[in-house]
């Protein structure tokens, strides 16, 4: 339970960073932290104390495997989610660099040509 709580704290920290900071680099960091918090949450769903890898060996019964093996699906989901996160992160930094070239600043309150 304490692990879930710590994940929630991480999530809230990321959201705070995303909302309160004006520097767009910090916003990107905040978004990445929220992403990692969700990834940790998915991993925790599949976690099992003293679990074994979900591979069927010769000297094992089906019951033993279902009792002790961890759920492999959340790990597969997290791998996919991390890859997507990488794509998003590189996209964000690329746009961020282009923004700096044009506006000469990372301050979101000065990047404000669109209104209404």
């Amino acid at each position: 339970m304490i692990l879930y709580f710590l994940t929630l704290v991480l999530f809230v920290m990321g959201v705070y960073c995303l909302i309160a900071k004006k520097n767009i680099i910090k916003k990107i960091i905040g978004l990445t932290i929220t992403d990692y918090a969700i990834n940790l949450f998915i991993i925790l769903i599949g976690y099992r104390a003293n679990g074994i890898a979900p591979i069927m060996f010769k000297n094992m019964t089906m019951q033993e495997l279902t009792e002790r093996g961890v759920d492999p699906l959340p790990q597969a989901l997290v791998l996919t989610s991390i890859v997507i996160g990488l794509g998003v992160l590189s996209m964000m930094t690329a746009i961020c660099l282009r923004l700096y070239e044009k506006y000469k600043t990372f301050d979101m309150s000065e990047i404000n040509r669109l209104k209404g």
């Binding site: 995303l18 916003k27 978004l31 992403d35 998003v88 964000m92 746009i95 923004l99 990047i111 669109l114």
Partner: peptide, 15 residues
């Protein structure tokens, strides 16, 4: 200028 700004806003909210 405007296009990059719009794209960044869209990206953050979309994510």
């Amino acid at each position: 200028h405007e296009e990059l700004e719009a794209s960044f806003k869209y990206l953050i909210l979309g994510e």
